[in-house]
Computed example of a mutant assay.
Amino acid sequence: MKKLINHVDTLLDESLHGFAKAHADIIQFNSQPHFVTRLQTTKPSKVAIISGGGSGHEPLHTGFVGFGMLDAACPGQVFTSPTPDQMLAAAQAVENGAGVLFIVKNYAGDVMSFEIAAEMLDCANATVVVSDDVSLAKNHSTGRRGVAGTLIMEKMLGAAAENGADLTFCKALGDRINAATASMGVALTSCTVPALGKPTFHLDDNQIEMGVGIHGEHGRETVSLMPANDIVERLLSTIIDDLQLKSGQQILLHVNGFGATPLMELYLVYELASQYLQKRGINIVRSLVGNYTTSLDMAGCSVTLTILDNELIRLWDAPVHTASLRWGC
């Protein structure tokens, strides 16, 4: 294992301190317990939007704290859920009289920790669970995983809260966005968790992993390496079938890198995806390409589609100013 670290036990703390110093104009960092909050004062009676999860997916979630997006984020250790005390402390720090909305990726540890924090929180609160990974069946025992669609959820709900939407509206909106969003990923390599010191699974040089998650776990199947055209077709056909997309519909296309894939390849995937969707009369009206929901040093990418209407387009276009996503400010 070759990584720019001093020791696995201090990696997260040193990284978060560096993040806080690099973006001191946007966020502030609380070290005991770990959470990040936006620096800018929010409007009175604004719903507080909070998310979090294991580290190793940067810039998710800490990179999306700021105006028009998250009010706070709780980072756990690498691929490990944050603790309820982190979430409770973060919620108490940013609650502003209108309640708290938690955005939770559908992983058992994350869901359990946020549920405990919500029970202890002495204010109105609600939870939206992100479950956009269509590589798993809808009737999977633990439900579908939350992956790159989390960013889309955080952006749109952050905009709604910034515009004054109440907690009930934000909760209903989050569920609607989740139902309109689907993702699927492919890995060319595994990732190396620092505490483990070796790749979490093995792929031969001529193998790829279809339907991979974001925690270094196996996907739905290991297959032979194929041209990018074929990979994109397999990802998109599954997503389109799941969303039951039809000609004439408008979508947001998000091509997300897992941390070790060059932008040249991510934009190639975007080009192939746009050709595939255009042939089917599906209109790409908004897009995002880059490393946003990563899996440490995994090579590969995911494709996310969100069905858009005029309201969701306005929320996506609304001003945002965070460390890793910003426009309109």
Rank of each mutant, 00 (worst) to 15 (best):
A98S: 02
G99M: 00
G99Y: 00
L101E: 03
F102W: 11
F102I: 04
F102T: 08
F102Q: 06
F102E: 09
I103P: 05
I103F: 02
V104C: 04
N106P: 08
Y107R: 08
A108F: 09
A108G: 13
G109L: 10
D110V: 00
V111D: 08
M112E: 11
M112S: 12
A117H: 05
A117L: 07
A118R: 15
M120N: 13
L121K: 01
D122M: 08
D122Q: 14
A124M: 07
N125S: 14
A126I: 04
T127R: 08
S131N: 14
S131P: 02
D132W: 02
D132R: 05
D133V: 11
D133Q: 06
V134E: 06
S135L: 13
S135H: 14
L136N: 10
A137R: 11
K138W: 05
K138R: 10
N139C: 05
H140G: 01
H140L: 01
H140D: 13
T142A: 14
T142M: 12
G143Y: 01
R145N: 12
R145Y: 08
R145L: 14
G146L: 10
G146C: 09
V147H: 09
V147D: 08
V147L: 15
L151V: 05
L151C: 07
I152K: 01
I152V: 12
M153S: 12
M153L: 08
M153I: 05
K155I: 15
K155F: 10
M156E: 10
M156D: 11
